[in-house]
Amino acid sequence: MSGGVVGGHRGFGAGAQRAIALGLMAALATPWLREALEATMTRHMLMQFPLVMLAGALLAAPADGRLRARIARWNAHGIAGLVFCAVALAVLMIPRVLDLAVRDAWVECAKGGALVACGAALRLSWRTAGAIVQGFFLGNVVPMSIAIGQLYVDSPLRLCNAYQLDDQQRLGAWLTGSAATLGVLWLLGISWRMIRSDSDAPAQR
């Protein structure tokens, strides 16, 4: 979902990234920003979710080598991290989560924790995953998001008591669009890299 945040951030040291992450999490936890981001279903899922994941990704800034190695042993080829991410996103897209998160502090905390973990897992896993594992991950998450997006668009009933029907349909359209865009961008990136490595290959010999 926020695949773009993974990698990058070369400009900041790990300490600075973690400080930014903590600042972002503190800001997102303030009642004012929480209410603003949860006022509509669209902002809730497509702005707040990615922002919390971004905080998680920043929090997972390169740690010292020993810790990284220890994590990597439990996360070969980034498989466990991406499995966690796919499962967590599937659970978080159950319509009841949005309603419960708005009215129940415990669920809100669990949702935040899961999203932070998701962002961190994504960053710790994405590069080591390689194209095949990445493709498998996106092959699950992208169609799932599109299916759920279409469900939101097509449902004649409100799926969340806390949100209006037109908001739900808007979220559905945006969820479908952004998931499809993410999938296409990834495919373009892979194709670009394959083309480039093909044309580089003879020169290296």
Binding site: F84, V91, I94, P95, R96, L100, N161, A162
Partner: peptide, 22 residues
């Protein structure tokens, strides 16, 4: 991770009977 997700989903949906808060 899968077991955790299954547990959470099962709690949220009352053993996969309901998907909405209503």
């Amino acid at each position: 991770a899968i077991a955790l997700g299954y547990g959470a989903a099962s709690w949220l949906t009352h053993d996969f009977q309901v998907w909405t808060d209503e």
